[in-house]
Design a protein around this nucleic acid. Sequence first.
DNA 1: GTCTATAGGGAGATAGAC
DNA 2: GTCTATCTCCCTATAGAC
Lengths: 189, 189
Amino acid sequence: MSVELGTKQKALREANSLLQKFGYNGFSFQHVADSLGIKKPSLYAHFESKEDLGLDLIESYKQWLGQWSESMSELDPEQRISAYFDMFYKFSQKGALYCPIASLNAEAFTLPSSMKKKLKLLYESQLNWMKKIIADGQEQTTFRSDLSSEEMAEFILSLGMGSQFLGRISNEADKVKMLKRHAILFLKG
Amino acid sequence: MSVELGTKQKALREANSLLQKFGYNGFSFQHVADSLGIKKPSLYAHFESKEDLGLDLIESYKQWLGQWSESMSELDPEQRISAYFDMFYKFSQKGALYCPIASLNAEAFTLPSSMKKKLKLLYESQLNWMKKIIADGQEQTTFRSDLSSEEMAEFILSLGMGSQFLGRISNEADKVKMLKRHAILFLKG
DNA sequence: GTCTATAGGGAGATAGAC
DNA sequence: GTCTATCTCCCTATAGAC
């Protein structure tokens, strides 16, 4: 049974939407407060600072990704790659959203260093997750073995990030599907 | 013989650097003025508003791209694709910079609509330019012919944008070279 | 074209009442 | 935890002297 979200969780959910659409520098405590129907200073009871909120956003996306990837632990490597691109497809459909990693990386040089570090750690954990999927696919001989899993993972993540660019600028989420198809063909060699 | 740049050209050059590093919302007239050693209000003699500056930035990048692509009109299709990725390699080397298109698209929903429109037009001209290169390669049978030049162009541009993501977050410009290699293999089928 | 001075607004953040 | 009130800073932008 789902319990009602507390103010902090509601604020994180709303801030995440704003981050994906407008970027970290593109939203303020004011916007979050307005969406929740509360006043701006009330947010400081839940987040010491915007930097603190930013760190929580990265952490909660990391948690969400962890649960999401566990939920498809039964799928085979190709299906997991497919699901990875479907995530971006849904973001794109939902309003040409960028994932938090793509969004924050675009603003990397304006972020507090604590956020920059945490972002890089999150990226590395995503890269490792992708490496594992690819290594699994190589063991099953579904995926090509002439390249390292690291190189292939970097290729796939880059294409995933590029798919968000394309989905936003063309305003056609289906472009993500097209790139997913080529990503899988690449992996199968 | 090179003539000295006027204030407006110097400002555009500086603002472009700031855009590629910090994004459009990540720099101000103050930053530009400081770099030029002049006072902030002096810039309003050259740009009616920041939006006006933004439009000029897109226009000047378009002009620069036009000259750049003309400068390699003698190269064969594969060499032009190589040069395209080398551009991002240089941006990445120069400080993990994003190209203006990637930078602006990440902030698309915070931009004045005039800039958003002009950005999309610039993207479309870049897509057409890429389509032309690929169609040339297909005619020469250097590139595969089982896919439309449009689909292949969208794939290459997406990978180019993804390469900038990877170059910045890994802080290793050489990753761009790796992606370039795969881009060319993709085109050759 | 460049300057000083300043207006007006939104940002992050804090004090202190309830 | 939430509120009102307020502070400081920086942003875009303008007025008007030189």
